[in-house]
Amino acid sequence: MISSAAARSDRSAASSQVIRESPPDAESAHSHAEMTQEQCSHRNNVQSSEQAQVYKVGIYGWRKRCLYFFVLLMMILILVNLGLTIWILKVMNFTIDGMGNLRITAEGLKLEGDSEFLQPLYAKEIQSKPGRPLYLQSSRNVSVNIVNSNNQLLTQLVTGSSGFKAQGKMFEVKSTSGKLLFSADEQEVVVGAERLRVMGAQGAVFSKSVETPHVRAEPFKELRLESPTRSLLMEAPKGIQILAEAGDIQAICRNELRLESKDGEISLDARRIRLMRLPEGKASAGASASGTRQTVYEVCVCPNGRLFLSQAGTGSTCQISNNVCL
Rank of each mutant, 00 (worst) to 15 (best):
1 M>L: 11
2 I>T: 15
4 S>L: 11
5 A>P: 05
7 A>Y: 09
8 R>L: 11
14 A>W: 07
15 S>G: 00
18 V>S: 01
21 E>D: 14
23 P>G: 01
26 A>I: 10
27 E>F: 09
28 S>N: 08
29 A>K: 10
30 H>L: 14
31 S>T: 11
34 E>L: 15
35 M>H: 12
36 T>Q: 07
39 Q>K: 06
41 S>T: 07
43 R>W: 14
44 N>V: 03
47 Q>S: 09
48 S>D: 12
64 K>M: 06
65 R>N: 06
66 C>I: 11
67 L>F: 12
68 Y>N: 08
68 Y>A: 10
69 F>T: 07
70 F>L: 07
75 M>H: 07
77 L>R: 03
79 L>K: 05
82 L>K: 00
86 I>M: 11
90 K>M: 06
91 V>Y: 07
92 M>L: 15
96 I>C: 01
97 D>G: 09
99 M>A: 13
100 G>H: 05
100 G>V: 00
101 N>E: 03
102 L>E: 05
104 I>V: 13
106 A>H: 13
110 K>P: 03
111 L>S: 06
115 S>V: 15
117 F>G: 02
118 L>G: 15
121 L>S: 04
125 E>C: 06
126 I>T: 08
128 S>K: 04
130 P>S: 08
130 P>N: 08
130 P>C: 03
133 P>H: 07
135 Y>Q: 02
136 L>S: 02
137 Q>L: 08
139 S>F: 11
140 R>L: 14
140 R>E: 13
140 R>C: 06
141 N>G: 04
146 I>R: 14
147 V>N: 10
149 S>K: 14
151 N>T: 03
156 Q>P: 05
158 V>T: 01
159 T>H: 03
172 E>S: 07
172 E>W: 02
174 K>A: 05
186 E>I: 00
187 Q>W: 01
188 E>D: 10
189 V>M: 11
190 V>F: 08
191 V>C: 00
197 R>H: 14
197 R>E: 15
200 G>I: 00
208 K>W: 02
215 V>P: 02
215 V>R: 05
216 R>E: 15
216 R>Q: 14
219 P>F: 01
220 F>R: 15
222 E>I: 04
223 L>S: 03
225 L>K: 07
229 T>Q: 12
230 R>I: 00
230 R>Q: 14
231 S>T: 14
232 L>N: 08
234 M>W: 01
237 P>T: 04
238 K>W: 06
240 I>Q: 03
247 G>H: 05
249 I>D: 11
254 R>F: 05
255 N>G: 04
259 L>G: 13
262 K>W: 03
262 K>A: 10
263 D>N: 13
264 G>P: 04
265 E>G: 10
268 L>N: 04
269 D>M: 05
272 R>H: 12
273 I>A: 10
275 L>D: 08
275 L>Q: 10
275 L>C: 08
277 R>E: 13
279 P>R: 04
280 E>D: 06
286 G>A: 09
291 G>T: 07
292 T>A: 12
292 T>I: 12
304 N>E: 00
306 R>L: 08
306 R>F: 00
307 L>D: 01
309 L>D: 06
310 S>Q: 02
314 T>E: 04
316 S>C: 00
318 C>V: 02
323 N>W: 01
325 C>Q: 02
326 L>C: 07
